[in-house]
Simulated scan of single mutants.
Amino acid sequence: MIRYALTRLALLVLGLFVASALIFTTLRILPGDVAQVIAGVNSTPEALAGIREQLGLDRPLFTQYGDWVGGILGGDLGRSQLTGTPVASELLQKAEVTVPLGILSFVIALLVALPFGVLAAVRRHRPDGVFVSVGAQALAAVPVVWAGMMLVVVFAVTLGWLPAQGFPRGGWSDPAAAFRALLLPALTIGVVEGAVLLRFVRSATLQAMGQDFVRTAAAKGLTRTQALLRHGLPSVGLSVVTVLGVQVAGIMVGAVVIEQLFSLPGIGRMLVEDTGNRDLVKVQGELLVLTGLVLVIGFLVDLVHRALDPRQREAE
């Protein structure tokens, strides 16, 4: 297990290095000039050259990349080219919105997928099971923006239960208000991603129901549902753990869109604004943090799957 963990950790570090190179290179290919944004549309060539020299944009790209990676290894993501503020401090501030939003969305997705996925499999030939399966297929195809607008119309405009946009200025100093502000965005992401995960849970449950040990338990006097719950759920759990890394990536992508829709001051909204302003240092730091988060979660999922699956340990 230790050897496997070290191997996966080495792949994680390699993945972060490759991701940093791709992010840095891709952002330099995009059109636009941060010096033009700072100086204005009527700036002279001399002024633009001075700003580029001040920001270090006139240096070779390899040197700029080396300085950026060296700063990352020292815990420094750089400073904003527009405001001069440290990127790491701004990311920590915005993470107070994005991280709870992602966690709440993930919990809602699990609450939707696990019980209803098992129900759709166990009662697949009955009206309620068919209804859940068809509903999951429909929800999985719904764009997250459209789902968010529909939830706003129902819960914010019509019923008035939840705020439609914004986040408390005091942040989490008022936990109830902050939670209410995140609940509707989290429902939007969680329901859509939960519908996607539900299909995997249903498929894994059907596969577990066909296993010999479940049929043997049923032959000894247990009902099919009892045999599944007592002996088949570990197998279902292994299959679900395998796709959780993909689901986390979907939740992070959804958060970028939803933060714009609900005017939440999180990392996703900051990323969109900084991309428009061509603040390359901030954008590359934000993209690297988001990519790193997805890779780390994938790494943890692999370790959990390895620990839970005795077949992999026996093969080793």
Rank of each mutant, 00 (worst) to 15 (best):
I29F: 13
F24W: 09
T158G: 09
F116H: 12
P185C: 04
V196R: 10
K282Q: 12
E46R: 08
G190K: 03
L238N: 13
L182D: 07
R278D: 10
A219W: 09
V145I: 15
G148H: 08
V142K: 05
L187C: 06
G232W: 00
E259F: 05
M252K: 09
L162R: 02
A195N: 02
R3Q: 15
P163G: 06
L9H: 10
L280D: 09
I29P: 00
I38E: 05
L308V: 10
G117P: 01
A109P: 01
P60D: 12
I23F: 02
V34L: 08
G254T: 00
G245F: 07
L183T: 14
R311E: 06
L187A: 05
G276Y: 00
G194W: 02
V272K: 00
W146K: 05
G285Y: 00
V142S: 12
A204W: 01
L151G: 00
A138K: 12
L229Y: 15
T7D: 12
D128Q: 13
L271S: 06
P127M: 03
V256H: 03
P100V: 02
A121D: 02
D67M: 13
H305R: 15
V283C: 01
G276C: 03
G129L: 01
L6S: 13
L300V: 12
V289H: 02
V294A: 01
L184V: 07
S263Y: 06
G40H: 09
W146N: 08
P45Y: 12
L295H: 10
V272E: 04
V201F: 01
D33H: 03
T83L: 14
L91K: 07
P175Y: 05
L73A: 13
I189Q: 01
F17N: 11
T26A: 14
S43P: 10
L293R: 07
D309N: 12
W68L: 00
F200L: 14
E90M: 11
G276A: 04
S20L: 06
A176M: 14
Q312F: 15
V253H: 12
A113C: 06
V18R: 13
V296N: 08
G170L: 11
V283E: 04
G266S: 09
L198V: 10
D33V: 04
T63A: 15
R8N: 05
Q36M: 15
F17M: 12
T25N: 06
V214C: 13
V13E: 07
L139H: 08
L14W: 11
Y4P: 04
Q64T: 11
R3A: 12
F299S: 05
V214R: 06
A147S: 06
L303C: 14
I108A: 03
P185G: 06
L73N: 05
V18S: 14
G298A: 10
V192H: 03
L55R: 10
L119Q: 09
V34M: 11
F116Q: 11
E273T: 14
